[in-house]
């Protein structure tokens, strides 16, 4: 009697488990759905947080699923990666990735093969700037001075051993016009330092310093991109000067590598539509991101990532970090 009771309970449990499993198999068809969390390593209200919210709006109206940014900040992005990797690998969680993940991979702190690239959405470009009263009002003068006096001028960057430092390291090894790196914690500190004359040169993306450029508080010297910025037609690219330094900060999303590749394709097709939405276009323009951003899908993004890993590994080696 007691045994049949047990059997029945087990059967009931099995049945319950069966019904519980049913919705999971159903998700394959109506993926994505519900609210999908997007882990990122920056603070709430920061650029990446706003990016997820901005693209999330058209994403929701297209797919019905909403993107919820989850900020796991600090620790050079490692805690964010740990958080993401602990989640179920069914594609229900996304991770916002950028150069930081490539750097962490090159340093052996994370393994990028656990990430399945979905789409690279934004691609930014940075510039070197000096104060209006600087002795070096164009890049040729700056390079000429630095070649004779390597390390004489100080370059302010944001973050220690982050993207900015990689770009500066690449600049130093490529050009031989060596700048001394001064890492600041926040970009606002670096900007205040160049305006106050404490450092000689500032590296920053175009968007955050637009106000200072329009009021002639800063003078742009060189842009790191394949082409000149339409708004700054007189500023040469590093490539034009004969130096192959085109690294740019980019933002993309990835899902776990064990998720089905169809899911990445599905997400990509939604992003393809979302980046054309007016609301997103507007935000992209206001951040000065419209010039270089070009959406690329899972395969192209994978290739891009592999190339980035090579570049950053080279830079890190030249800096003696690995």
């Amino acid at each position: 009697m007691r045994q049949t009771m047990l059997k029945r309970t087990l059967m009931a449990l099995g049945l319950a488990a069966g019904t519980a499993l049913a919705p999971i198999s159903a998700t394959a068809e109506d993926y994505p759905s519900g609210s999908m969390e997007v882990v990122h390593q920056f603070g709430p209200g920061g650029g990446t947080d706003r990016f997820i919210r901005a693209i999330g709006e058209p994403f929701k109206s297209i797919s019905g699923a909403s993107l919820v940014p989850i900020s796991v900040s600090g620790g050079a992005g490692i805690p964010a990666s740990v958080n993401f990797e602990q989640r179920p690998g069914d594609g229900s969680s996304l991770m916002a990735i950028g150069p930081e993940q490539v750097i962490n991979h090159a340093l052996g702190r994370i393994d990028l093969s656990k990430y399945q690239p979905v789409a690279r959405i934004q691609y930014d470009q940075g510039l070197f700037y000096v104060a209006p009263d600087s002795e070096y009002q164009n890049i040729e003068d700056l390079i000429a001075h630095l070649k004779d006096n390597p390390g004489d001028l100080k370059l302010g960057v944001t973050g220690a051993a982050g993207f900015d430092a990689m770009l500066a390291g690449l600049w130093n090894t490529t050009t031989g016009a060596e700048l001394t790196l001064i890492p600041f914690e926040k970009s606002s500190e670096a900007m205040a330092a160049v305006l106050g004359g404490h450092i000689d040169v500032l590296y920053e993306e175009y968007g955050p310093v637009r106000g200072a450029l329009e009021s002639n508080e800063l003078v742009p010297l060189v842009v790191f991109s394949e082409e000149r910025l339409p708004v700054l037609p007189d500023v040469p690219t590093a490539e034009e000067l004969g130096y192959d330094v085109t690294l740019g900060r980019w933002r993309g999303v990835a899902i776990a590598s064990e998720a089905a590749p169809e899911k990445a394709e599905k997400l990509y097709s939604i992003f393809e539509e979302a980046v054309d939405a007016d609301s997103y276009k507007k935000i992209e323009e206001q951040s000065g991101l419209q010039y270089r951003s070009e959406l690329i899908g899972p395969e192209a993004f994978q290739e891009f990532l592999e190339n980035e890993v090579q570049v950053y590994t080279e830079v890190l080696k030249s800096l003696g970090q690995i």
Partner: peptide
């Protein structure tokens, strides 16, 4: 006055302003 946030909270506010199409800077 300069478009440089003086704290973490004002940095977030700056982001909000940018979305409204206002570019904080000396001209603001």
């Amino acid at each position: 006055a300069l478009g440089i946030p003086g704290s973490a909270t004002t940095a977030v506010m700056l982001g909000g302003l940018t979305i409204h199409g206002i570019i904080p800077g000396p001209l603001m």
